[in-house]
Design a protein around this nucleic acid. Structure first.
Length: 882
DNA sequence: GGAATCACG
DNA sequence: ACGTACGTGATTCCA
């Protein structure tokens, strides 16, 4: 089966039918069901990818009666018609096949089976390797050394393959005898009678002995008892059944292999069809199918913008501007722009050199002119040193893709966006600059190449906005995208550009202290171990404590002994070296990640640290912070908390730290509508204490610290979908008691239970869960057959609406705080966000205004069925704001 | 470049 | 019976 000529034959009705029943309902938002088409195409794409056929044909049944109906009035009697949800999907499927130039065949009086049988025969005669895909086992009779029959099992994704040998192996019969088997056993689904009482096993046995239906009949005398009687009484039925089950491989079919050739089609037309059905994920798979014409990036001119006046006039007319700055590596505070590329309509592209961009300041800052682009925060920040504040950021395609397709580990680079929406290959930054040691900078790169890179970005921006906008509206994310995510770009850009002041002296003092601690700990560890080794190497450390010192192994990792904090905690009483190792780990972490790490990113010009805030990373909608990560500065331990003394306010300013109190639990109370939980919050009591009293049925005064901490653990566990096992482990209680806690928790807060169950059920059906503001998180694992993956998917599904809604809320607050600071002409700056906490560096004159402003905007960002509560703390350093 | 570890909400 | 809390980022070791 290694011919160059390969023909893929698909039983269209059989496969679309299977797909319909195997896949959960899907629709395109316009009432058109799409699951069967989607399933069909997924299967077909997979086959094309695996088989690489040169020819394809899809056969369909027609409604008209076939020769089988004429021969046997009851043929297929009792079969229900197609459900309308499936019937409505036939035309769209046929349209897609047509637009992909895939041959379709249907012939009055015959079934799809007969078409496949005939083509496969002619194909074999013409030296093709033939691949037949269907859900109907009848087709097994077509199997041969040249024809591989693939029968779908479990939906449409997996198939069982049969060639001659495969049939013999599985049934002990030749493919031709498979027809005889049908003749004997009949087929309920087609209402073919066969011989009542003879099933697959008996049928196979008889055929192995007598060869065929006719053989069985001739030798009926050799049979005994009831079996003999059955065969005698149903001779005619058996012969007729065999006839009905025989695929007619000689039907009068017009066919030319030329028509069935597969490979070239109008990709853009197919994409349009897919977009109608919302099959975005399939669009990106088109490129895997065939190397047929990828749409080339059009060669375009990018000219120096000479006539700025006319350009500005035109912008004012159009009202939209796309921009991409290209910068040299350098200090965020310096003017680093090499070139700024501009386009108004996606047709004409221009550039300006370096500082020339200042000529467009008014337009760039204009609230009238809408700015569109890709990763516009970079441009926003790049323009700041020129005194330009990019205004009215309307549409950023990287963030649009993030809200449209939010799932874990997805990338939103320009190439994947272009590929998905436009089926275009565009140049990536890596392709432009190269990777690794040989990589170039933007300054070194050839200008012609740079132009192609920019054309790719602009073409993509202008090409995808319409489709993205439609997705955003269809999914109900207009408010989230236009009123939260887009304005947030400038907020985050400002935070990055402003940075946070650090006290280098404090940092150096801490460094000296910690060096001492590390040195002392090292010395003691080596002496207790009796040798020197690399304490930072879990491998070497494992050898020392588990082999040399013989401590009991608590847990293993993939690669060896586990030596993490939890394990060390368990070994604490076994040997005094453990405490030292644990402390050593703590201080080394502080030095490497925080002291050395922060030291290396202090901006030499302003003595501040300028982190980058990422808006398209976290699958739940949170913001993340890198270079450095300012969202994981130590706070939980006394020694670690000292790092916060490094983050200070400038002279004449104060840090105002505002944090939401229990925002995730409040979100949960609101979203679930649970009256008891809502009451718990409105009582104003400490929430974990109140929960303890409600769940354990004791008066508030009788809540012991143990009960409170149990309630706290359950409260948090609920947010993450924690199991009884995990709770038992954390609280160090029996599994039974942990179960008890959870049961009484859900007994008291029964709507929370219902809410969680509903989220999981919805996610299993739709594949995603949503926040209060319709932010989606896609969780494909929840449909997995793997128990572990599926459960992880369920927990992610339960957590995403809570964590994500809280993220939405603080983003709204950030936009509102930022707007008020601007509108009221205040000099204080929002400089940090740590998920439920905002930090403003306030000038002292504005301190009271800022306190009120922060509290007001954060508490009123949204209105929930429970109040949002914000705690304020003021200090000269982050350490003091506690 | 992945694994292990540990810092945060 | 399964394996056992969601979401991040940085550092270090080691193949």
């Amino acid at each position: 089966m290694d011919n160059k000529k390969k023909i893929l034959l698909i039983d269209g009705n059989s496969i679309i039918n299977r797909a319909f029943f195997a896949l959960p309902p899907m629709d395109n938002g316009d009432g058109l069901h799409t699951n069967a088409v989607y399933g069909f195409l997924t299967m077909m794409f997979k086959m094309i990818k695996n088989i690489q056929p040169t020819h394809i044909s899809v056969a369909f049944d027609l409604k008209a009666p076939t020769f089988r109906h004429k021969a046997f009035a009851d043929y297929k009697a009792g079969r229900k018609g197609m459900p309308s949800e499936l019937a409505m999907q036939l035309e769209p499927l046929k349209n897609i096949l047509d637009s992909m130039n895939i041959d379709r065949k249907e012939l009055e009086g015959y079934e799809a089976d007969d078409i496949l049988g005939t083509i496969s025969r002619i194909g074999e005669e013409n030296d093709f390797s033939v691949y037949v895909v269907t859900g109907d086992k009848d087709a097994i009779q077509l199997a041969s050394d040249k024809t591989l029959v693939m029968i779908t099992k479990k939906g449409v994704a997996e198939v069982e393959e049969y060639n001659t040998e495969g049939v013999i192996e599985r049934y002990g019969l030749t493919p031709a005898q498979f027809i005889d088997l049908k003749g004997l056993m009949g087929d309920k689904s087609d209402n073919i009678p066969g011989i009542p009482g003879i099933g697959e096993k008996t049928g196979i046995k008889l055929l192995q002995e007598f060869g065929s239906v006719e053989g069985v009949i001739e030798n009926v005398d050799k049979l005994k008892g009831a079996q003999k009687k059955k065969v005698e009484e149903n001779t005619e039925s058996a012969i007729m059944s065999k006839e009905l089950a025989t695929i007619d491989r000689n039907i009068p079919l017009d066919l030319s292999f030329e028509d069935m050739e597969f490979g070239s089609f109008d990709v853009q037309a197919v994409i349009k069809e897919f977009q109608k059905l919302k099959f975005n994920s399939l669009i990106s798979k088109l490129s895997e199918l065939t190397d047929c014409e990828e749409k080339e990036v059009e060669k375009k001119e990018i000219n120096k913008l000479e006539d700025i006046e006319t350009f500005i006039e035109k912008i004012n007319e159009e009202g939209v501007l796309s921009i991409k700055t290209i910068c040299r590596e350098g200090n965020i505070l310096d003017k680093n722009i090499i070139k700024t590329f501009l386009s108004i309509d996606g047709k004409e592209y221009y550039y300006l050199d370096g500082e020339e961009i200042i000529a467009l300041k008014e337009i760039l800052e204009s609230e009238e002119i809408e700015k569109i682009g890709y990763e516009l925060k970079q441009d926003f920040v790049a323009l700041r040193p020129y005194g330009i504040y990019l205004g009215n950021i309307k549409f950023d395609i990287s963030i649009a893709e993030y809200v449209i397709e939010s799932k874990s580990s997805s990338s939103y680079d320009i190439d994947s966006i272009a590929n998905k929406y436009l089926y275009k290959k565009v140049m990536t930054k890596d392709e432009l600059l190269g990777k690794g040691a040989k990589s170039l900078s933007f300054e070194e790169v050839d200008f012609e190449n740079l132009k192609d890179y920019i054309i790719g970005i602009f073409d993509t921006v202008f090409g995808v906005i319409e489709a993205m906008e439609k997705s955003i509206i269809d999914d109900g994310m207009e408010m989230l995208f236009y009123d939260v995510e887009m304005p947030l770009i400038a907020v985050l850009g400002d935070m990055e550009y402003t940075g946070i002041m650090v006290d280098k002296d404090v940092l150096n003092e801490l460094d000296l202290e910690i060096k001492e601690l590390i040195y002392d700990a090292e010395k003691k560890i080596f002496s207790l171990a009796g040798e020197e080794f690399n304490i930072n190497s879990p491998k070497q450390l494992g050898v020392i404590i588990f082999e040399k010192l013989g401590l009991p192994v608590v847990k293993k990792t993939k690669t060896g002994y586990s030596t993490n904090a939890e394990v060390l905690e368990k070994l604490m009483d076994e040997h005094e070296i453990i405490r030292l190792i644990s402390d050593y780990r703590t201080v080394v972490k502080l030095k490497s990640t925080y002291i050395d790490g922060l030291n290396s990113v202090i901006n030499e010009k302003d003595g501040r640290i300028h982190s980058t805030f990422n808006q398209t990373i976290a699958s739940t909608g949170r913001i993340s912070s890198t270079d450095p990560n300012l969202q994981n500065i130590p706070v939980r331990t006394n020694i670690g908390r000292n790092i916060r003394k490094v983050f200070i306010s400038e002279n004449g300013r104060k840090l105002v730290d505002a944090d939401y109190s229990q925002v995730e639990l409040r979100v949960l109370a609101h979203m679930s509508g649970d009256e008891n939980m809502i009451e718990a919050f409105s009582s104003g009591e400490d929430i974990h204490r109140k929960t303890a009293s409600q769940v354990f049925n004791v008066s508030l005064d009788d809540v012991t610290p143990e009960l409170r901490s149990a309630a706290k653990a359950v409260n948090f566990g609920i947010i993450y979908g924690k199991s009884d096992f995990g709770l038992a482990k954390d609280l160090n209680i029996s599994l039974a008691r942990a179960k008890d806690y959870i049961n009484s928790y859900f007994g008291k807060y029964d709507k929370i239970k219902g809410f969680m169950d509903e989220i999981v059920a919805n996610a299993e059906r739709t594949g995603y869960s949503t926040t209060m503001f319709n932010r989606r998180r896609y969780i494909p694992e929840i449909k997995s057959n793997n128990f572990i993956d599926k459960n992880r998917g369920k927990r992610a599904a339960m957590n995403a609406p809570i964590q994500g809604s809280a993220a939405d809320i603080i983003k709204i607050a950030m936009v509102n705080v930022h707007n008020r600071l601007f509108e009221e002409g205040l000099k204080s700056k929002l400089i940090l966000q740590v998920h439920d906490e905002l930090i403003v560096e306030a000038v002292e004159d504005e301190l009271e205004i800022i306190e009120a402003l922060l509290k007001e905007e954060m508490e009123n960002a949204v209105y929930l069925d429970v109040d949002l509560d914000v705690d304020l703390n003021i200090g000269n350093s982050w350490y003091e704001t506690k």
